[in-house]
Amino acid sequence: MDVQALWLTLKLALGTTAILLAVALPLAWWIASGNGLGRAMVQAGVALPLVLPPTVLGYYLLVLLGPLTAPGRLLIRMLGHPLAFSFTGLLAGSVLYSMPFAVQPLVAGFRAVPVNLLETASTLGSSPFRIFRMIALPMAAPSLVSACILAFTHTVGEFGVVLMLGGNIPGATRTLSIVLYDQVQDFNYSAANRTAAVLLVFSVLALVPLYVRRNANTRSLLA
């Protein structure tokens, strides 16, 4: 068992989930609180990683963050090294790649909060931020849990973006899914079995709470 890769994978997934929460909460609230072309375009942009091959996303990020483009050169000058082939670069790629998995459940959750509750809260003297904190966020709490679980597990399972953007550097960018790929390349099937089993068990364990909650909610609606 490659403990270093396991630790790196968990670190990447936790970091991605934390950053995504900070980005997705305000973004989803903004998307859910109106209509219009601007919001639709942002939503399409956020949803893009759902249909785009991960290698394509990884490729564009690799080019964008490299010395061939102006933003890439600026980043290299600021950091002193390229963002690609580093943990930070991998984190940036993962955030983009898992963005729809965090944003979409939150948008659905916020949209399900009845407008009349938000309006009533504002006539009672609550600022938009207080309405978000006291009404929208608690009422969308189940969606927040879904968003966290999905962002986390999706990051654990990513492969294409990591391979393109991160390469295969032990301790920096070598995650469990890359380890599995290497083990299969080396015909080391017993090791590959163990790695695959860890990823499988982990994914199932993470998804169970999601559906336990959902089914409990459905039952309470019928009762």
Partner: peptide, 15 residues
Amino acid sequence: PAHLRRTPLAPQAPS
């Protein structure tokens, strides 16, 4: 804006 008007509204359906 509504939250600064000090005109609380009790809507028809108790929200």
